[in-house]
């Protein structure tokens, strides 16, 4: 029993990181139909930058606080430089483009930080054992920060005028303009939000899951799967989808075979896409005659 609880708990912590990444996908997709494959790189970039800052002697808290706006700026800058110039964005185009961005970012991180995986020092706190489950303080940090950040993003998108206007951009650009939000501006903000949640995910996860130049893509894809559970438009489902995925992976690793851990997410992805494709692809279907 305590084994099961142990697996579930550490799965939840990992899942919270997936959930944050998933939020980033939805934040962009809901505003402009782009699947941003570079989403995971924001996390890797944040983790590695913070490690460098800490190594250089900056205390943990200021390092973390400094890194987040930096990653947001990188995300926005990339949007300005690479996404904005494209006049007519098709799914194929956006996939290839963001894949290119992801690859370039990865390689730049490799050049700067080298191939070794490293971790941030753990946030302050003591590990505890509860009902036979050993809990790292960092895992509690992950769950707590993810909950706060996740709730804030959901609230901002669903309840503020700005958030509503941004979501409207995809469907009713005119209405959005009336509130003073141009689709260009909305896309920029959306990338900023994606950079923000990506950076947070990378920072809180780094002490346990480490950061390295090539870990963003895998993380991003898991986040994408979680986002797909919510049809790429529901922020709440994306967040919970991440938790679910994290737990599921850990259970498969614990009870079936650790080797299949990485296949779980994609089996889920294929199942979701195949069981209810009509719900997910309605917008792309040929019904526009």
């Amino acid at each position: 029993m305590s084994d099961l609880l142990q697996l579930v708990f550490s799965g939840l912590a990992q899942g919270a990181v997936y959930g944050l990444i998933a939020l980033g996908f939805v934040a962009i997709f809901a505003v402009r139909e782009i699947v941003n494959l570079a989403q995971g790189e924001y996390a890797a970039l944040a983790g590695l930058s913070a490690i460098s800052a800490v190594t250089a002697g900056v205390p943990l808290l200021p390092a973390v606080v400094l890194v987040v706006p930096m990653v947001v700026m990188v995300a926005v800058l990339i949007e300005r430089l690479c996404i904005a110039p494209i006049r007519k964005m098709t799914p194929l185009l956006s996939i290839i483009l963001t894949l290119g961005i992801s690859t370039a970012l990865k390689a730049i991180m490799l050049l700067i930080w080298g191939p070794q995986a490293r971790g941030l020092p753990a946030f302050p706190g003591r590990d505890i054992v509860l009902a036979g489950v050993s809990i790292r303080s960092q895992e509690l940090w992950i769950l707590g920060i993810s909950a706060v950040v996740g709730a804030a993003v959901v609230w901002a998108y669903e309840h503020t005028l700005l958030g509503k206007a941004m979501r409207a951009c995809a469907e009713q650009p005119v209405a959005a303009r009336l509130v003073g939000i141009s689709p260009r501006m909305a896309t920029m903000i959306a990338f900023g939000v994606a950079g923000f949640v990506g950076a947070v995910a990378g920072l809180v996860g780094s002490p346990i899951y480490f950061s390295s130049w090539d870990y963003g893509l895998g993380l991003g894809l898991k986040g994408f799967v979680a986002a797909t559970l919510g049809g790429l438009v529901s922020l709440r489902v994306a967040l919970f989808g991440g938790l679910l995925l994290g737990v599921l992976e850990n259970l498969v690793a614990g009870y079936i075979d650790t080797g299949y851990r990485d296949a779980v997410a994609f089996l889920v992805l294929l199942l979701v896409l195949l069981v209810r494709p009509q719900g997910l692809v309605l917008k792309a279907s040929a019904a526009r005659v």
Partner: peptide, 8 residues
């Protein structure tokens, strides 16, 4: 980077 499942 994850070893909880194995060690459990």
């Amino acid at each position: 980077t994850l070893f909880t499942a194995q060690m459990v």
